[in-house]
């Protein structure tokens, strides 16, 4: 019998070396997350997956599961904090869901719905972030970046192109294209790259399609993000 721990009282088995979120998702237990992706190493930046373990809070994507640990996740207090983090992500960028073609297929939007976020609460930053439309097949809309760095990791670790990076510090951190000109057209990124397909929000848009999935058939039209055993896999099919 494998070792196990509990999340909100439910027993979750785990294998040696698994993080809490890896074991949870494998067991069908949803923990909100944005920067975590099952195919990539833990990153621990969005903090939405923060859980409470023996009175201490910790990111479940960077904490190894241990036998017998009692993890609290779906609690009002933790969900309040997750909602606040989500609100902060919304106001730091320009997330205009009504005109975004990722609406319905966006993890940030789906997570906000799932957490019961009704307003952005905080003052919007309204940053000026021009889009990069230089590439013939891919459009970059930096307005929607939540700094999960999945594209950075995918381009570096999977595509072997190192085409993206996070630049700046603190609140000025932002996604850049790793080219001398700063333009996507001057990289060797292609539509087939993992980096193009891994974005959980709407930064990477294919130019050959727009709003091609009708309302009602989008991933999160069908069920909320918390009801997916693996929302990442469902989004990857789009």
């Amino acid at each position: 019998m494998s070792a196990s721990f509990t999340i909100d009282g439910k027993a979750v088995p785990f294998a040696e070396g698994q993080t809490i979120i890896q074991a949870a998702l494998a067991a069908g237990v949803y923990i909100p997350h944005l920067c975590h992706h099952p195919e990539f190493k833990p990153h621990g930046s969005c903090k939405l997956c923060t859980v409470r373990i023996s009175g201490r809070q910790s990111a479940s994507c960077t904490t190894l599961a241990q036998a017998g640990m009692a993890v609290e996740s779906d609690t009002p207090a933790l969900n309040d904090e997750r909602r606040t983090l989500t609100q902060m992500l919304f106001v730091e960028g320009n997330h205009f869901c009504p005109s975004c073609e990722k609406s319905g297929n966006c993890k940030l939007q789906a997570t906000a719905y799932d957490l019961g976020m009704m307003t952005a609460h905080f003052d919007h930053f309204f940053p000026s972030r021009p889009v990069d439309a230089s590439h013939p097949d891919v459009l970059l809309d930096f307005n929607r970046c939540i700094l999960c760095s999945l594209c950075v990791r995918a381009s570096r670790d999977v595509d072997g192109k190192n085409a993206f990076a996070l630049s700046g510090r603190g609140i000025k951190t932002h996604l850049i294209v790793n080219a001398k000109s700063g333009r996507l057209a001057d990289t060797d990124v292609t539509l087939q790259d993992k980096a193009v397909r891994v974005c959980p929000v709407g930064v990477f848009l294919r130019k050959d399609r727009g709003f091609n999935v009708p309302i009602g058939r989008r991933v999160f039209d069908l069920k909320p993000v918390s009801a997916y055993v693996d929302a990442t896999a469902a989004l990857a099919k789009e």
Binding site: P98, S99, C100, E101, P130, V131, A133, L139, L205, K207, R209, G210, F211
Partner: peptide, 14 residues
């Protein structure tokens, strides 16, 4: 202005 054209039908209806 400055937005991709395919967004337009969805945006301007607002």
């Amino acid at each position: 202005q400055g937005r991709p054209y395919w967004e337009v039908p969805v945006t301007v209806q607002r």
